[in-house]
Amino acid sequence: MRKDQKKIAVINYGAGNLGSVVNALNRLGYQPLVTDSVFEVLKADAVFLPGVGAAGDTMKGLEAIGMADAVKKLVAYRRPLFAICVGLQVLLSSTEEGGHYPCLDIIPGEVKKLPAGLKIPHMGWNQVKQVMSHPVFTDIPDNTNFYFVHSYYAHPTDKSVVAGVTEYGLEFCSMIIRDNLFATQFHPEKSGEPGLKMYSNFLKIASL
């Protein structure tokens, strides 16, 4: 099947730098649909949930367009979903950011602030140690550097969903995989060729 006959949706909830995710997918030869329509997202073959900014604003943005429930449905139906940065954080039960803010509760656990003493945000290239063997890491060596920019990190209760860990003052979960749900604290679209490779592996897993 030709790439353009299958559909990739990039969720647009009025925040986040969607452009760089779209540019990365274009580079891989895909033409994603940037959309705020629940209908389009639910019928897509693969979905990207980008994120930049605060988790509370992201939750509000998703709820305002009915997308919070749509994301829960995608996960329940095991549809291929890739969540990035704050997109990963909102999958957890709640976040400390802005006090205590309830999130999607798809992955039980909490989002916490990075420990004091180091420069915040954690900004730059850091290694992702692969703690799960998975085809999404095909041709991506263990401890490859990816680009991070964040002040909070996910702390899932169930450690079996942790696919990658990174060290910054403490060892935190930098990647989550559960069934067809993939989520990274880092930005693959800003992580050079290994980042593009990860998107390409994900889309292969999604049969695109």
């Binding site: 452009g19 760089s20 540019n23 990365a24 274009n26 580079r27 680009y147 920019v149 679209e189 800003k190 992580s191 050079g192 060729e193 980042g195 593009l196």
Partner: peptide
């Protein structure tokens, strides 16, 4: 540039 450069 942003269409061909995938770093910040």
């Amino acid at each position: 540039v942003s269409k061909q450069v995938f770093v910040p």
